[in-house]
Design a protein around this nucleic acid. Structure first.
Length: 766
DNA sequence: CGGTCACCAGTTTTT
DNA sequence: CTGGTGACCG
């Protein structure tokens, strides 16, 4: 009896087919990770392949970690030398070694979307673009699409023909690239593009990696884009032992450049490819699966396959419509409470939705009802202002060439260096063709900087000091020193009392992550470096922090939920105009609607035992009330699978749950006549949820405890005179016992009345 | 230079 | 409703 006997027939076939191209069409829940891990084990144990020669590419760091763990469990040794990583981290690793061949410094920094936007602003200013006409976001998205198709500025310009707008964009593209390079920075797309360029132009590098990666596996292949396809083709070009796994029905990243043709045309690209379909689902009940099949069968042009399961029929799918989104949230929260009372755990449930903004109401209800939860997504931890500030210090210390980072922190905390001075430095830098930081080192060369020279000097001295320290001390020590010497922590506490606590907690969290990184390096016998940390930090996704063994309800978008599974899934906001989104309904591209349908399919198939669909008749969106019908996708589910709960009258009067099994959307019932209120403006994205500083509940997240301890007793009391670093002397008016800390109200002699947390205010009795 | 106030524009999904 | 931006004043 070997470990391979536990596989079903097609699974085993996929594991045993080791040489040559292989396409595994793996339906949802059909055990594809199992196949991949067993295949790796088989390669190592039975085929004698050196783990060193295996590359497995996954979609997220979390998936990579899990895969490595599972291979570890199977093989027991050698698994640490398998390369398991995401496309992006793999590229960074290659580029750190070889990007100097393309004329970059190997210590390049990585720009996130926020940085890109800042850079684009500067570009538009320089190229004299009216940002009313060409929005930064639109420009960036055009450039990103171009990069995803490997179209460089020159070609883009040629393609423009005589089109005035396109030529203008070409100019922006060119300048954007120039500035990235000047800052020694790469954006996310560049990581892939540059790696492909490297492999294309440097035969020895290509040869090196082709030899190394003799066996390549790519997970979630349906979501690869054109550059990723090129990259994989290049790497697999010599040995052609390429195994791709995916499900065309779960392709949901078109907006990010994913090209569904990569999987649909795999057999054309590799005519000798073996194709294996995994159609038995081990995850869900029959009812859930049939609902999913019902929905997805409305899509055209998909690979023919039908999922089946030997699991029982299971419960019916619960569908409830409410009057308001508020009622919807309340129901979900109460339902989860009820299940927990009946013996379920919180982490048996997940709430999925189309847009991040929907998390807010749910979060409020969960807090009110004391349900532990974790929100995945929204604003990335590393995109928070305070985190970006601190990271900008690290970047500046690490790589003075990143103008964006330097400009970000030159006056944070306030040092009296204003915009005028910053612009003068920039002009001087541009004029001399040097970096912003280098220009600032010599204020005497900057015309008109006279009065600011002293301030600039002390800023430069501070950074230079940190640079020296970076050589000598550990990352965490450096971080602490930066926080301390810049006065960042103190200023934060002083600036806005409301947000201070959560921001300081985030900084604590960052310190924890730095410490974890150092430990990690120690375990792996590598040197913990500043750039190493910055790089790790640049490529994490929020989903990576999800921990299955923690007992909380997970809230996230359908996109984030891909690859996960839960006993009970709530799919919230199944309304026309929200899901499918307003944009796809009004747009005339039927492919977009198909992608939304695939998203729906992904959502349904996350559920193992129970699926609850909820929607609201009206909902507030951007301050306006929207009136929505039940999602068209619901009518694609065979009606006999649905339990509308109509008999079990939940609530007397209004907010009941009515749903007529018929086609359901002849008329919008009610106000407004149309299905939507609100005017559809050009689609775009950005920060979707999360009011200022509103921090998702992270108290349950491992390692988020504050290191600063709440003291039992304060050294001062009401009426005492105290001194604050920034505000000077004052009198304590009030001390309130808070959850984690004392909230102290002080009337300062010069700065007025302020509330602050004792832990951070460091008040001294005088 | 920095703070405050008023106005305006915006939101699908993310490595 | 909210965050970002621009004008104005201390």
């Amino acid at each position: 009896m070997s470990i391979y006997d536990t596989l079903n027939e097609p699974q085993r076939e996929a594991v045993l087919h080791t040489d040559g191209p292989l396409l595994i069409l793996a339906g949802a829940g059909s055990g594809k990770t199992r196949v991949l891990t067993h295949r790796i084990a088989y390669l190592i144990e039975e085929m004698g392949v050196n783990p060193w020669n295996i590359l497995a590419i996954t979609f997220t760091n979390k998936a990579a970690g899990e895969m490595r763990q599972r291979v570890d469990d199977l093989v027991g040794f050698g698994s640490e030398s398998i390369w398991v990583s995401t496309f992006h981290s793999m590229c960074v690793r290659i580029l750190r070694r070889f990007i100097d061949r393309l004329g970059y410094d190997n210590r390049f920094t990585i720009y996130d979307t926020d940085d890109q936007k800042t850079l684009m602003k500067a570009v538009c200013k320089k190229v004299d673009i009216d940002t009313k006409q060409f929005k930064e976001r639109m420009l960036l998205s055009v450039i990103s699409s171009a990069k995803n198709e490997m179209i460089l500025p020159e070609e883009f310009e040629m393609n423009a023909g005589g089109d005035f707008a396109q030529l203008k964009i070409a100019k922006v593209y060119r300048e954007y690239e120039a500035q990235l390079k000047a800052n020694n920075a790469l954006d996310f797309d560049d990581l892939l593009v540059k790696t492909v360029q490297l492999l294309q132009t440097q035969p020895d590098v290509r040869e090196n990696y082709q030899e190394r990666f003799r066996y390549i596996m790519v997970d979630e292949y349906q979501d690869t884009n054109t550059v990723q396809f090129k990259l994989v083709s290049l790497l697999a070009g010599k040995y052609r032992n390429l195994c791709v796994v995916g499900d065309d029905d779960q392709s949901i990243y078109k907006f990010r450049g994913a090209n569904i043709r990569n999987i649909l045309d795999f057999e054309k690209e590799y005519p000798d490819a073996k194709v294996i379909k995994l159609e038995q689902n081990y995850r869900s009940t029959e009812n859930i699966l049939n609902a999913a099949n019902g929905v997805i069968s409305n899509n055209k042009g998909r690979k023919d396959k039908t999922l089946w399961t030997a699991n029982g029929e299971g419960q019916k799918i619960c569908l409830k419509q409410f009057d308001t989104a508020y009622d919807e949230a309340e129901f979900i929260a109460e339902d989860i409470k009820k299940e927990v009372r009946d013996g379920a755990s919180y982490n048996d449930s997940a709430v999925l939705y189309r847009t991040n903004a929907q998390s807010r109401l749910l979060e409020e209800k969960f807090i009110a009802m004391n349900i532990p939860y974790k929100i995945v997504g929204g604003i990335n931890f590393y995109a928070r202002r305070e985190i970006k500030d601190i990271l900008a210090y690290l970047k500046t210390v690490d790589n003075g060439q990143d103008d964006l980072a330097v400009r970000r922190i030159i006056n944070v905390p306030k040092r009296g260096i204003g915009l005028t001075t910053i612009n003068r430095i920039q002009e001087a830098a541009d004029a001399r063709g040097i970096s912003f930081y280098d220009a600032l080192l010599a204020p005497e060369m900057i015309p008109g900087a006279g009065r600011s020279a002293a301030k600039l000097n002390s800023f430069a001295a501070l950074i230079e000091y940190f640079k020296g320290q970076a050589e000598k001390e550990s990352l965490t020590d450096l971080l602490n020193e930066i926080l301390d010497m810049t006065g960042y922590t103190q200023n934060l506490e002083a600036d806005d009392e409301i947000d201070a606590e959560s921001r300081l907690q985030n900084i604590e969290e960052l310190l924890n992550k730095a410490a974890a990184y150092e430990e990690d390096c120690e375990d792996r016998d590598e040197k913990a470096t500043l750039s190493g940390f910055l790089e790790e930090v640049a490529l994490v996704a929020d989903i990576d922090s999800l921990e299955e063994d923690q007992d909380y309800v997970v809230l996230m978008t359908l996109h984030s939920a891909k690859g996960l599974e839960f006993p009970h899934v709530y799919l919230a906001g199944v309304e026309d105009g929200l899901f499918p989104s307003y944009m796809t309904i009004t747009g005339d591209d039927p492919e977009e609607l198909e992608e939304e349908r695939r998203l729906c399919y992904v959502g349904i198939t996350r559920a193992e035992q129970k699926l609850t669909l909820t929607c609201a008749r009206k909902r507030m969106v951007r301050g306006e009330t929207q009136y929505n019908r039940i999602s068209r996708f619901i009518s694609e589910i065979p009606p006999e699978l649905l339990d509308t709960g109509r008999s079990s009258a939940e609530r007397a009067g209004g907010a009941g749950n009515t749903y007529s099994g018929d086609s359901g959307f002849g008329n919008a019932d009610g106000i407004g006549g149309g299905a939507f209120a609100g005017t559809g403006r050009g689609g775009s994205f950005g920060k979707a949820y999360g009011a200022a500083g509103k921090k998702p509940f992270t108290a349950l997240t491992k390692g988020s405890q504050l290191t600063a301890q709440k003291s039992d007793k304060l050294s001062y009391g009401v009426g005492d005179r105290v001194r604050h670093v920034k505000f000077g002397e004052g009198t304590v008016l009030d001390i309130k016992e808070g959850g984690r800390d004392f909230e102290v109200t002080v009337e300062f002699d010069t700065a007025g009345v302020r509330k602050m947390f004792a832990m951070f205010a460091k008040l001294v009795k005088i």
